[in-house]
Nucleic acid binder design. Structure first.
Lengths: 197, 197
DNA sequence: GTCTATATTTGGATAGAC
DNA sequence: GTCTATCCAAATATAGAC
């Protein structure tokens, strides 16, 4: 009657417990992998039995949904304020560095947000909306420094996620690809500059 | 006594059955996801019970291993002959197009080969050797056209896998990132040229 | 080499008492 | 809202007969 499906301001305790469950779910996927989330273990870690979780989430997928949405919300909250420059190269550098730092601090979160890894799980439209908002913030940042050609944004996301994916898959904990970020930004900026002519 | 653990030329029938099992395993992961491979189902699809599979593979992981190695062997066999150009831009274009085509024709295979997605599975050293060989072939191709600076190869793999990852994750079946390949190659080549000065 | 039988563990989800 | 009890299904792997 009140809210949109699973959110309500009227039951703060309920909402707090939901959050505790999600927090613990993050802990568990970091330890056991994204697909290794178990309701029994999750329940017992927050002090209840598995069936009780169904008072807070209608299914296991809806827990992933809450995590997915939270991940993108955190991304928006953390990355956006990092971009303070106003010149093109500066904006791109800050964008790349802060998003890379955000992603590599929690590779499992990045996996849930940016890769299709859990068999059978597809983000709900509501959860996906958060991801769309993050992308739109990026798009508007790029437009602010004159980057809005067809494919320009897509090439940027590919370049940035490529560096991060490689870093995660082949040198987790190191900086083999991380240290190429400034090079990559320069390469990208030069291309934009050249196309402007 | 004879061979290296799991390979033998002396039992062609045995080897043929192994291959049938691996082929069927590919079919199943394409349908149920990488983590959705089940020994019961796999066995029954090749006309035997799950325990019989243990006559051919010591564990489920060793099936993934065989698939991993086969994927990289196929990559070597398919991508290498596609590169016939001798100029820098031509080589990079052929390399990028053929690897992208190879990857996108079978996204699940790409996932197994290039992303860490199966909880608890890590390629064995023998399986990984095939991946290393593929990378070395790429490195030598790049060196052949004068690309060998520190980070140059890493930036190339990041750029290429970034495009493919985005294509798979966000526009499977389309060509939104695929069509940026030539642009990306140009951007990369310009950077190399500029650094030469 | 293949089978049956089984060990052992685990999974998500529901019914219904309290 | 939480519990017990249970359903139902699935998983990998081993033992031992044939």
């Amino acid at each position: 009657m009140l809210g949109t499906a699973e959110k309500s301001t009227r039951a703060p305790r309920h909402e707090a417990t939901r959050q505790r469950i999600v927090d613990e779910a993050w802990r568990q996927v970091r330890q056991h992998g994204l697909a290794g989330l178990s309701l029994r273990r999750l329940g017992s870690s927050v002090g209840m039995r598995a069936p009780s979780l169904y008072s807070y989430f209608v299914s296991k997928s809806s827990i992933y949904d809450a995590m997915f949405a939270q991940g993108w919300a955190e991304c928006i909250a953390e990355v956006t304020p990092c971009v303070t420059a106003s010149d093109r190269r500066g904006v791109l550098r800050q964008l790349a560095r802060s998003f890379a730092a955000f992603s590599l601090r929690d590779p499992i979160r990045y996996q849930l947000m940016c890769q299709r890894v859990i068999p059978g799980y597809v983000p709900s439209p509501e959860a996906y909306a958060e991801a769309v908002e993050a992308l739109e913030l990026t798009i508007s940042r790029l437009r602010g420094v004159g980057i809005d050609g067809p494919g320009d944004v897509d090439l940027w996301t590919a370049l940035l996620t490529g560096l991060i994916d490689q870093q995660i898959a082949n040198d987790l904990g190191g900086e083999r690809w991380l240290r190429l970020i400034d090079d990559a930004v320069d390469m990208y900026v030069d291309r934009i500059d050249r196309r402007a002519k």
